[in-house]
Computed example of a mutant assay.
Amino acid sequence: MAKAAWMVVVAVAAMMVGLNAQSMSCGTVVTDLYPCLDYVRNGGAVPMNCCDGIRSLYRSAATTADRQTVCNCMKNAAGSVPGVRLDLAAALPQKCGVTLPYKITPSINCATVQ
């Protein structure tokens, strides 16, 4: 269950931050964003290591194709864990100082991610 929960966090966060699918696997993304899991389930203060992971993934973004690939990977995992509040997950980039040029939703069309 914990690994599946990671995937939901990753799905939303990765769609938000976009990252380089060519050099990162979904497993790496899950590991980086695991610290966000408690926050997206329960709210409260965003853990510093969660923001560190989001910022790291954002900095790793390289090309549109990379970001779209990761978006699709994470989107496929988004529905697998109950209890994740998508409103909290969607707010993570801004709370961590990352500005995105698109809005993250569970129904995002990853082909539109630039």
Rank of each mutant, 00 (worst) to 15 (best):
G18F: 00
L86V: 07
T64C: 12
L100E: 14
I54F: 10
T28H: 06
G44Y: 08
T112A: 12
C26E: 10
A45M: 03
C73Y: 05
T112H: 06
V9S: 07
P35Y: 04
I104C: 14
L88Q: 02
C96F: 00
D66H: 13
D32Q: 14
A91N: 05
Y39C: 08
C50E: 07
T64E: 10
T99H: 10
T64Y: 14
A13N: 13
P106Y: 04
C96A: 13
A13E: 06
L88I: 02
V40F: 15
G97R: 01
T69V: 10
G83M: 15
L86E: 15
V29I: 04
S107D: 09
L57N: 12
V40T: 12
D66I: 14
C50L: 13
V8Y: 15
A62H: 06
Q94A: 10
A89T: 07
C110Y: 01
V10L: 13
S80G: 14
V46N: 00
L37S: 10
M74I: 04
R41P: 08
A90T: 02
C110I: 03
K103Y: 08
R41E: 09
C50Y: 12
L100K: 11
A11I: 03
D32F: 14
G79R: 03
I104Q: 04
A91Q: 02
G83E: 04
S80T: 11
A61V: 08
A65G: 08
Y39G: 10
A61I: 05
Y58H: 13
Q114T: 08
L57G: 14
T28N: 15
N42C: 07
T105N: 00
G97V: 01
R55M: 03
P93K: 00
C26A: 15
Y34K: 05
S107T: 07
A5N: 09
I104A: 03
S25P: 14
M16P: 07
S60H: 07
L19K: 04
M1H: 13
R55V: 01
S107N: 13
M7F: 10
A89I: 02
L88P: 06
K3H: 07
L88K: 11
K103A: 14
T112R: 12
C73W: 11
V70N: 04
C73M: 07
A77P: 15
V29C: 10
R59Y: 03
A61P: 01
I54E: 09
K3A: 09
M7V: 14
A65W: 05
C73L: 07
P47T: 02
D66L: 11
L88V: 03
Y34L: 05
R55T: 05
K75G: 06
A45Y: 12
N109E: 12
A4W: 13
W6T: 15
P106V: 03
N72G: 12
L19D: 05
G18Q: 01
A91C: 02
P101D: 08
L19I: 12
L57V: 05
M7N: 10
A4K: 12
M16R: 09
G53F: 00
V81L: 07
A11K: 01
L19V: 07
L86N: 06
R41H: 07
V98H: 01
